[in-house]
Design a protein around this nucleic acid. Structure first.
Lengths: 164, 164
DNA sequence: CGGATTCGTTGGGCCGGCCAACGGTATTTC
DNA sequence: GAAATACCGTTGGCCGGCCCAACGAATCCG
């Protein structure tokens, strides 16, 4: 049997207890799995998580500048350029100069963008269902609530950097 | 005030609701924060998360081969080489050929490794305390339990890859 | 008007995660 | 006991995520 490399803890009956209970470790593992599942699902539409996130943000906030999108989704302006360019190339969003503020690019959802977003949302939702398949709906809500509080540590906004 | 780029949702009152409730998204954000906190803490000892994880694994499992370490911690054999080399260079572990199986490297903890591990464990624990500062002890245990079940989806071992 | 700030863009850098391949070693098989 | 098979450690390379620095164009503020 070609065992090769089967991924983390494929058949290991044990594991370092000391680190396995660390939230940071568990979060990393869980995030990796979630990222993999969602990425694979979204790949069928030729998109990645960022694309889907930006697309969703545009759909929710209407025509928005890239900078604001970047702040909303939480990604670097530099990467936003690439993402919007990709979305524009695929005809999912339109990038028109804002007449009110000619520095800004008004990013808006196209008709096809709306269609694709519907599909990617379904794909993302299904991937998340698989990710949390071991949880009951109530537990999943619990997890979401706990994670939300971890992601946003109280009101200390300035402290939360996006470092290293 | 130079606002510059302050990281994800530094002071954004809103955010795309649709994606903010996705476990995969939340996990990614939470993991990023946890990684940052732990990485900063461990950096004071010149270590990263992998180093600490491997060190802990060695401490728990006694002298182990690198391959088994890789499976336990869940990292690629290639990266394990670098990690063990780093740890060996700093005198935290010993890498001696296994007389029973000359293919293997028996990685064992050194005296200084034990000392450093004690410090890094404390650093990691404190970082995790900060990470989960918004949670009560009971909630933290809950989170750990939920994440553990997400990370290990039932008994389907083969499925759980670390793909990318 | 003039200084500071913001926007979009380009360029580069660091880190983590993974696969492919190779020589050395052990195990299985005939 | 020799061949086939599988595993171990190692090297090299690829890709994605995340971040900072800098620059021209445009806007805001005094």
């Amino acid at each position: 049997m070609g065992r090769r490399y089967r991924g983390p803890m494929a058949d290991a009956p044990y594991a370092p207890r000391r680190i396995r209970v660390l939230p940071s470790w568990l979060l990393g593992r869980a995030a990796a799995r979630g990222h993999r599942l969602v990425a694979e699902a979204l790949a069928t539409e030729g998109m990645r998580m960022v694309h889907h996130a930006v697309l969703s943000a545009v759909a929710e906030s209407g025509p928005v500048s890239q900078a604001e999108l970047g702040r909303t989704v939480g990604i670097d302006p530099k990467d936003m350029v690439t993402v919007v360019t990709d979305l524009q190339r695929d005809g999912l969003v339109t990038r028109t100069p804002d007449p009110a503020d000619r520095r800004k690019n008004a990013v808006a959802l196209s008709a096809q963008g709306r269609r694709v977003l519907r599909r990617t949302q379904r794909l993302g939702d299904r991937a998340n269902d698989e990710l949390t398949a071991a949880l009951t709906p109530a537990e999943r809500e619990q997890l979401i609530a706990l994670l939300t509080r971890i992601v946003r540590p109280a009101g200390s906004a300035g402290e939360a950097a996006a470092g290293g």
